[in-house]
Design a binder for these strands. Structure first.
Lengths: 151, 151
DNA sequence: ATAGCTGCAAATCGTTTGCGCCATG
DNA sequence: CATGGCGCAAACGATTTGCAGCTAT
């Protein structure tokens, strides 16, 4: 439970107003409820899952509104998506061990050799969920590519 | 240019036959062309992009066949996809610095604190594409989760 | 006031599936 | 000759869009 979530609703709303102001978004009832739902859901919800929850509080809400608001949050940088999501399947034809550089703006992906990293490993103290057996690491270096830099 | 790509076509085909045998796939003309196209394309092609290329060599090929073969490659482990692809957008509501554990089989995602990793960094010798400005790392620990383990 | 947001319904896009025919092992 | 793969077309699920009325600033 993060400190923000334990604040009374009044103060959470105030914090949300500030956040929206900073990110250039206006504050609507739907947007506020969608944000609260996002923050309260465990894991990494999909738009449909968010919609289902929001519906409990605003029965007339539309799925389109949920999508529009999620994009408002992502585009303004107020929230992030879990992983680059091209919306389409991408095949990795490079079978050499390597990782990826991803441009935050245009989502272009570049390869970078695994040998370019200092060895990566979990601390001995790391607490991994029960019984999860790690196999390998996939690293994304998020940043801005040359082209996008110049615009 | 990988060594495989520079072999004459005859030998590449032979290598492909071996690969298919090892992964339990039969060898068809379409499958072979799709594989060659995948290997020859720079970057991380989408099914549509592959389809467009394959069409140059087999005008009557169908998009469905491209999808089926891509899945044959992925399911058999002959190739990988670039990144976990839920097929749906996932929102990251956790704003604490953390990384992800991803189950290869069911694609479930768990959070793991950034503090659980030994410090991650690029070697000084690392060669990053011109002008790419790194911002932060996103690590996925790929493996098998408890539930999937037991099935 | 006015620019932005909402709900609705239709459109679009990526992907999957069912089927009758054909190629591979 | 038996199984699996092919092309085709229809189905499907996720996401986007256009629009007319309402709301926040």
């Amino acid at each position: 439970v993060s400190p923000v979530e334990s604040l009374p609703q009044q103060e959470r709303l105030q914090a949300f107003r500030t956040l929206c102001l900073r990110h250039g978004l206006s504050v609507t009832h739907q947007r506020w409820v969608i944000y609260e739902v996002l923050k309260s859901m465990p894991g990494h919800p999909s738009p449909e899952e968010v919609f289902a929850q929001v519906r409990h509080q605003i029965p007339a809400v539309s799925l389109g509104t949920v999508y529009k608001n999620i994009h408002a949050f992502l585009d303004s940088g107020l929230l992030r998506e879990v992983s680059l999501h091209h919306g389409t399947l991408r095949i990795e034809a490079n079978t050499d061990p390597h990782h990826h550089l991803v441009c935050r703006r245009c989502k272009a992906v570049f390869d970078i050799s695994e040998a370019d990293f200092e060895p990566l490993r979990l601390r001995d103290s790391a607490r991994v969920p029960n019984g999860f057996v790690p196999d390998h690491f996939a690293v994304e270096v998020i940043g801005i590519c040359d082209r996008c830099q110049q615009q």
